[in-house]
């Protein structure tokens, strides 16, 4: 089985990091993974996106036309990519910045106020972790406990940030459940 997740948003929203943490989690769980960034000129200030491919077999093409899921952190990303997600996939919409919806009825739409939640726990920069936790909780694409450990590992060099990000993980998970 192979699954793909596309993360998209503005440069600076932690898009590439979210993808990396998901890839790391999947790898720790024993899956094959590939993390494929967009590194065009749009990286600076414009839209940034990356795709994470997760599979139980060696990965063929890391280039994906239709990802299984989408995490959209800004409006242009949702507008650009909502249409290419495979049916039954999860589309996470960062409602803090996106006033519209995907317009699809064949997918699982997950609406999360990532900025508000991150701001409640003390730092809006944790919005990407809130979104990622929400997405993982809903899609169950990887094991949530392994994911939690990976977030800890990611911030091990800045231990001060660990409690904040653990809160982000919990609140994100909660948001996924509330939205059901």
């Amino acid at each position: 089985m192979q699954s793909e997740v596309m993360f998209a948003g503005f440069g600076g929203q932690g898009i590439l990091l979210s993808g990396k943490i998901l890839a790391q989690t999947a790898m720790d769980q024993g899956f094959e993974v590939a993390w494929v960034p967009s590194y065009g000129p749009e990286m600076r200030g414009g839209t940034a996106y990356c795709t994470v491919v997760i599979s139980d077999e060696p990965i063929g093409s890391p280039i994906i036309k239709n990802p299984a899921h989408l995490v959209a952190m800004n409006r242009p990303s949702l507008e650009k990519f909502a249409g290419i997600v495979k049916p039954k996939g999860v589309i996470l919409i960062n409602a803090s910045l996106i006033p519209i919806r995907s317009g699809r009825d064949d997918i699982d739409e997950l609406i999360v106020q990532t900025t508000e939640i991150a701001s409640e726990i003390g730092n809006i920069r944790a919005a990407n972790i809130v979104a990622l936790a929400s997405f993982i909780a809903r899609s169950r694409i990887v094991d949530f406990d392994i994911f939690r450990e990976c977030v800890k590992k990611e911030f091990s060099k800045k231990p001060k940030l660990i409690p904040l990000n653990m809160k982000a993980v919990d609140k994100g998970k909660l948001a996924a459940n509330f939205d059901v």
């Binding site: 990396k20 790898m27 094959e32 993974v33 993390w35 960034p37 590194y39």
Partner: peptide, 10 residues
């Protein structure tokens, strides 16, 4: 190719 440099894999 550029992707070999930019891609992350185990």
């Amino acid at each position: 190719d550029g992707l070999i440099g930019q891609m992350m894999e185990p």
